[in-house]
Simulated assay, not measured.
Amino acid sequence: MSGYRYLTLADRQTLEALYLEGDRVQDIADQIGVHVATVYKELKRGETGGLDRNMRREYSATLAQRRLAENFKRRGRKTDEADRSDLAEAVKV
């Protein structure tokens, strides 16, 4: 468990299956090869708002993957047209 890595969709699907089986978060983290905090963050990311058959918050790997993709799209500073024109003027000077 050294270094940081993003979970893949396959990792998320494994997490979903193990979580639905009722496995402990520590056991899921060990099996996927990530820190326990990563599993908790992932469970929060993929929370559907309902309860699963174990009466725990329901997790969807597909929903988590979609939310991650949306977060990646929003990353970084978004420049609008005014900022670009100001930059172009500064470069001319």
Rank of each mutant, 00 (worst) to 15 (best):
N71F: 02
L51P: 02
G46Y: 06
A88S: 12
A64H: 01
R77N: 12
G49N: 09
R53F: 02
K78A: 14
L43H: 02
L43N: 05
E81T: 09
T79I: 12
Y59A: 10
R45T: 13
K44F: 01
A61H: 00
R56F: 05
E42S: 02
K73Y: 04
G46H: 07
R74E: 04
R84L: 15
D80K: 07
L63I: 15
T79W: 07
R67I: 11
R57K: 14
A61D: 03
Q65V: 00
D86M: 03
G76D: 13
N71R: 14
A69K: 13
A90R: 03
L68G: 06
S85K: 07
E47H: 11
D80W: 02
L51C: 08
K73M: 05
G50F: 11
K41E: 03
D86S: 07
A69M: 10
G50I: 02
K41H: 07
T79E: 14
R45N: 09
R45W: 01
S85D: 07
E58K: 15
A88K: 12
A69V: 13
D83I: 03
Y59E: 04
T62V: 03
A88G: 09
A90T: 05
R57E: 14
G49Y: 03
R74V: 04
D80H: 10
E70P: 05
M55C: 06
A61V: 02
R74N: 09
F72S: 03
N71P: 04
E42C: 08
G76C: 14
E89I: 05
Q65D: 08
R45E: 10
T79F: 15
R75A: 10
K78I: 11
A90D: 14
L51V: 09
D83Q: 08
R84P: 04
K44M: 07
L43E: 02
S60K: 04
E81S: 14
Y59R: 02
E81M: 02
G49V: 11
D80G: 15
N54D: 04
L63W: 09
G76R: 12
D86C: 00
D52S: 12
E81G: 03
D86Q: 06
R66W: 14
L43C: 06
D86E: 06
K73G: 05
R67W: 06
R56L: 00
E42R: 02
E89F: 10
A61M: 01
R84S: 12
F72A: 01
Q65G: 00
D52M: 01
Q65F: 06
G49T: 09
G49E: 14
G46E: 06
D80Q: 09
F72K: 13
A82H: 12
G50Y: 09
D52G: 09
R84Q: 14
R77K: 14
S85W: 08
K41Q: 04
